[in-house]
Design a protein around this nucleic acid. Structure first.
Lengths: 179, 179
DNA sequence: CCGGGACGATAACATTCGTTAAGAAACGAC
DNA sequence: GTCGTTTCTTAACGAATGTTATCGTCCCGG
C-alpha cells in the first residue's frame, strides 16, 4: 500500500468518469469487438469468458469490488477482443474511456508506472492459471481455489466455477459432495 | 521475411558470441537460477520444462535449429527462472551474454523492435498453449500437434511429448496406436 | 562384446470424468 | 402468488485416463 493504487489514480478524479449500473447477465464487452473502455467495479461481480468452437463457454477470470477490468490487449492494440465480459450480479461500474485512459498514462508518470505494474500482474496471473491447469487435477484445483479464494467459491454460480476449473457442472457437484 | 530477423541481428556479429557444443541431457538453465544468457540453436534440440511439487517434470516447449531460447522473464528482471532448459539431442549453440544483449537492444532501434516483437510472440504462444489446454482433450491436442508440428512429434522422445500434452506416456502410447 | 539404463508397447485394473436424464430448489417476471 | 427459467443435485452408464507392472528394443559406456 505504499505506492498509490492505479484505481485511485485513474478514477478518483472529478472529470472524465461515467458511472453505470447494470443488472446481472449484462454483456459489457463482446468477443471479437474492440474494447474502448476500462471499468472499475464499485459494487457487484463480473466474469471474463470466451466461447470455444463448439459453442461451449469457458469462464477464466472473476472480478469484484475494487477490481479494474478490461481486455487490455484489445484496448491497447485496438484488436478484436478474444474474450467477452459479463456481469454475474447487479453491478455498479465506473467507466473510463480509451482516449482518456491513454492521455492520463502519457501525462502522468506515476500512472504509467502503476499501469505497467498492472500489466505485469496480469501476465503473472496468466502464468499461474496456466501452471495450475497443467499440474493439478480438477479436484486439486477446486481445493486450491477453496483455500486461496473462498470468496470466489461462495459468490460465483457453480456452472461458471465449473468451466473455470475445466470440468462440467455435474463433476463439480460430485467433487463438492464427495461421493 | 521483410524485416531482418532478430537472430541475425544479434548473432551475425564478429564479437561477443561464444559457441558451445553439448551432449543430450545437458542442463543449460536450472529452475530457480537467474538466467544470464541468450541461446541460438545452430544444431540440435532443447526443451523447456519445470518440476511441479511432486517431482513430476512437465515439458511445455521445444526448440530446434534457428530458434532463440532463454527464460526472458528471468533474463530481463534478474529473477529466478520458473523453468529449466535442457538439451534433448547433441546440440550446438551460440551464446550471447546478458549485458551484451541489452547493450545491443539499447543501442540499436531495429534490435529493440525485433526483440519486442519476439516477446509479443512468446506471449501469444503462451495464450495459444493455454487455450489449447482448456478447450481440447488430450487426443485432440495430440492430433492438432501432429497436424501443425509433425517435426516435433517425430523428433521429441515420447515421454516428453506426453507431459507436453498433459498425459502419461502410457496414455500417449495408447492414443498413437489407437486401441 | 556385454551389461545397464532409457524408451516404448501392452495388459489389467481402478478411478475419474463426461453424457444424459430426471427431479428438486432457488429465483424472476408477471 | 404462480409460472417458467435457471441452477444445482443425483443417478446410471460408458469412455478415457492414471497406475502399476512386465517385456522387448535400442543405445551407450566400459
Amino acid at each position: 500500500m505504499t505506492a498509490p493504487d492505479l484505481a485511485n489514480l485513474l478514477f478518483d478524479t472529478p472529470t472524465g468518469i461515467d458511472d453505470l449500473s447494470v443488472p446481472a447477465k449484462t454483456l459489457l464487452l463482446a468477443q471479437d469487438r474492440i474494447a474502448d473502455r476500462l471499468y472499475l467495479i464499485r459494487k457487484g461481480a463480473l466474469r471474463l469468458f470466451f466461447a470455444d468452437g463448439s459453442g461451449q463457454e469457458i469462464s477464466f477470470q472473476f472480478f469484484f469490488e475494487g477490481d479494474m477490468v478490461a481486455s487490455f490487449a484489445s484496448l491497447y492494440r485496438r484488436e478484436p477482443s478474444l474474450f467477452s465480459l459479463e456481469s454475474i450480479e447487479p453491478t455498479t461500474l465506473s467507466v473510463l474511456g480509451r482516449d482518456e485512459l491513454f492521455a492520463r498514462i502519457e501525462t502522468t508518470p506515476a500512472i504509467r508506472r502503476a499501469y505497467e505494474e498492472k500489466l505485469a500482474d496480469r501476465f503473472r496471473s496468466y502464468q499461474r492459471l496456466f501452471l495450475s491447469r497443467i499440474t493439478k487435477t480438477p479436484r486439486q484445483r477446486y481445493e486450491a481455489l477453496l483455500e486461496e479464494r473462498p470468496d470466489i467459491v461462495r459468490r460465483v454460480p457453480q456452472h461458471y466455477l465449473a468451466s473455470y476449473l475445466g470440468i462440467t457442472p455435474v463433476s463439480l457437484s460430485r467433487i463438492r459432495n464427495r461421493r
